[in-house]
């Protein structure tokens, strides 16, 4: 009886300790995430005045109707999907390649690993400004490089060309994010037991087979994390694109986050902007969850 009471008392104390330990994080989450999210959903159902003094008139799903019947929205979705596809595939793929390379033994490996951190440690906005100048049609280093290598014969205004502007924003964002992926995947590679690779090698597996059947499965949890993070980063990407093109030329780089910014902060149609934010948030969430499911289903199949 006494023991039971003591256990119960201890359990309560443990539980209370747990509550105390998590309370700060829980309150922060509630204030910074849950409250704004709920407010955004409520706003999306109202015609909110720009002054924000009230929710304004309740208009139900009218904002969503406007969104889903708008060509501007669907064009923005198209741009967002292209950006996301390019960003996720290349930043993850290049990150994996960099991790594999930096996991080899070579002179200067430590220095090379140090360099990997630089793009990741640079703010997105700075990346955008750097690449805006790098891709400049008059004085940009990218043009000098392409002409020097004989790939092009003259300087090109990439950011004013709707066919190139989106590509360049993807390249700029990938340049930063690939290093982040590389760092995480390199950490995963370093935990790979050397015996696994050696055993596969003794069994006659070539490099491609070792990558496919030993390294990738080992890295799968890390790859899932990196891919999901990259999808979320891609859907929410704003800084690099805004710094480079502000969504232009025309609507060539107007991803959903820039459309939301315009609706919320420039045009101050808060209800409509909130509805767009709900749609984008849902898309990022669904995209992330779907990726987890697909990758883990692949894992259980192997």
């Amino acid at each position: 009886m006494t023991t039971t009471l003591r256990k119960s008392s201890l359990a309560r104390a443990d539980a209370w300790f747990g509550v105390k330990m998590t309370s700060v994080a829980a309150i922060s989450m509630a204030v910074l995430l849950i409250v704004p999210s709920v407010l955004t959903v409520i706003y999306s159902l109202h015609d909110v005045p720009a002054s924000g003094v009230s929710f304004g008139e309740f208009i139900g799903l009218e904002n969503y109707r406007v969104i889903f019947t708008s060509k501007v929205f669907w064009r923005s979705v198209e741009v967002t999907m292209i950006f996301t596809g390019g960003f996720v595939i290349f930043s993850t793929g290049i990150g994996l390649a960099m991790a594999l390379l930096l996991n080899q033994n070579f002179i200067g490996r430590g220095f090379a690993r140090g360099l990997l951190i630089i793009p990741w440690a640079t703010p997105w906005l700075v990346i955008g400004i750097l690449w805006k100048w790098y891709a400049d049609g008059s004085v940009g280093g990218l043009n000098a490089l392409l002409v020097g290598l004989g790939i092009t014969s003259e300087y090109k205004n990439f950011l004013s060309d709707p066919n190139w502007a989106l590509t360049l924003t993807i390249v700029a964002a990938v340049w930063r994010q690939a290093s982040f992926a590389g760092i995480l995947l390199l950490a995963g590679l370093q935990s790979l037991p050397g015996e696994l690779n050696e055993a596969a090698e003794l069994d006659g597996a070539n490099a491609w087979q070792r990558l496919r059947h030993v390294i990738i499965p080992w890295l799968r949890p890390m790859l899932v994390t990196v891919t999901v993070l990259n999808i979320i980063y891609a859907f929410l990407q704003f800084d690099v694109i805004f710094a480079m093109t502000q969504g232009g030329p025309g609507d060539a780089t107007q991803v959903l986050s820039i459309l939301i910014y315009r609706q919320l902060f420039v045009v101050t149609q808060i209800g409509l902007g909130s509805a767009l934010a709900v749609v984008l948030g849902a898309a990022a969430l669904i995209g992330g969850l779907a990726t987890v499911k697909i990758l883990y289903r692949g894992a259980s199949a192997t």
């Binding site: 400049d136 049609g137 008059s138 205004n157 950011l159 004013s160 060309d161 502007a165 093109t245 502000q246 232009g248 030329p249």
Partner: peptide
């Protein structure tokens, strides 16, 4: 008008004038 005017800032445009471009 150069193709880049859709994204050029006025600082660059002033410089284009100053340089004779």
């Amino acid at each position: 008008a150069p193709q880049s005017v859709l994204t050029d800032d006025p600082g660059k445009l002033s410089n284009e004038m100053a340089q004779g471009n």
